[in-house]
């Protein structure tokens, strides 16, 4: 079986609509419309064409290199086309707790920049930084923003309560850009041992109390870890947003987010689980306005606050 994007689109009858990478909002909706006539048992009418901005995703491969393999990025765009996701906000964090050098960080960000260049209307970038790189990390933020990125992504190298993170937060405030942080309240000892400095809801609250003007997003409520704990932990921290991404698709997650935090703090995202990420927003018991706010309007509001 051929898994490449062109063949997939040909077989789905959408190739004419999805030829290249020039899709903006209208084109993404058109592509999804091409499939909307097909059966979607049990799903709301027109679900593919509902506007969607994916606030947390990734470019996983080093596509900045010569002769790079673009298959994974192409698969990402193909999936976004099919699901009606207008734009994917991507980063490439260096994982495993690695205190990456600034050179490695730059290379990672270059892969996102390459993807942005290839798909300018579909992929936007978060700048990954390793706060331990000090002033060089701040310089990297400036480089990324100058190249068109929209925010900063931090992983689990340091707890977000660590003072080493504070200059990064201050630089985000200066530019009015979002700070998207990896999160997880890990109750499994082995999982916790793998990322002992992963921040959880209370760490986000502490950072938000120190910097209430920071556009702080707690990443992937369903990215592993106790999501009920995560939601409850954010109740008294009204400045912190929460994104809905992750591979866990447990029922009630979205309703609990809305009930405990209010729907305006909830951002649609997938973190690579695209069908599941869209599905849980469609399945959740929400009003039309709440669903639209979560799918795109809340995140658009964050982006409009940028000063850069």
């Amino acid at each position: 079986m051929n898994h490449n994007r062109r063949e997939f689109l040909r077989r789905t009858g959408a190739a004419g609509l999805a030829a290249v990478s020039l899709a903006g909002r209208g084109r993404a909706a058109e592509r999804a419309e091409g499939r909307a006539a097909r059966g979607s048992t049990g799903l709301p009418a027109g679900w593919r064409t509902l506007r969607k901005l994916d606030a947390h995703n990734h470019v996983f491969t080093p596509v900045q290199r010569p002769n790079a393999d673009w298959a994974e990025v192409e698969n990402l765009i193909e999936a976004a086309d099919a699901l009606g996701i207008e734009r994917l906000y991507c980063s490439r964090p260096l994982t495993g707790g690695v205190l990456a050098s600034i050179e490695a960080v730059r290379e990672a960000n270059d892969s996102v920049l390459a993807a942005m260049k290839r798909y300018p209307q579909r992929i936007a970038g978060y700048c990954f930084v390793q706060p331990g790189n000090g002033p060089a990390a701040l310089d990297e933020i400036e480089r990324c923003l100058a190249a068109g990125m929209i925010g900063v992504k931090l992983y689990n190298q340091f707890k977000f309560t660590d003072p080493v993170v504070f200059p990064v937060a201050e630089r985000c405030i200066q530019h009015g850009i979002p700070f998207l942080g990896h999160s997880g309240f890990l109750t499994d000892p082995r999982a916790l041992a793998q990322q002992p400095k992963a921040s959880h809801a209370l760490d986000f609250c502490a950072l938000s109390r120190r910097y209430p003007e920071l556009l702080l997003i707690m990443g992937h409520v369903n990215g592993g870890g106790d999501w009920e704990w995560a939601i409850k932990g954010l109740r008294d921290c009204p400045q912190v947003y929460l994104d809905t991404s992750g591979s866990v698709l447990e029922a009630d997650t979205i309703e609990r987010c809305v009930r405990e935090l209010g729907h305006r703090r909830v951002l649609f995202a997938t973190d690579g689980t695209l069908e599941g990420g869209v599905g849980k927003i469609l399945a959740a018991q929400l009003t039309t306005e709440q669903r639209e706010d979560i799918f795109w309007r809340n995140f658009q509001g964050i982006l409009q606050r940028r000063r850069t």
Binding site: F8, R11, T12, G13, R35, R38, G39, S40, T41, G42, L43, W47, A82, L83, L249, E250, A251, E275, G276, V278, G279, K280, L282, A283, A284
Partner: peptide, 20 residues
């Protein structure tokens, strides 16, 4: 779908995405 642990709609989307 892994109901009732998980939402059902993700699997309905997958089924729709196999219509080719």
């Amino acid at each position: 779908s892994h109901l009732p642990f998980d939402y059902v709609a993700p699997s309905l989307i997958k089924l729709a995405n196999l219509e080719h």
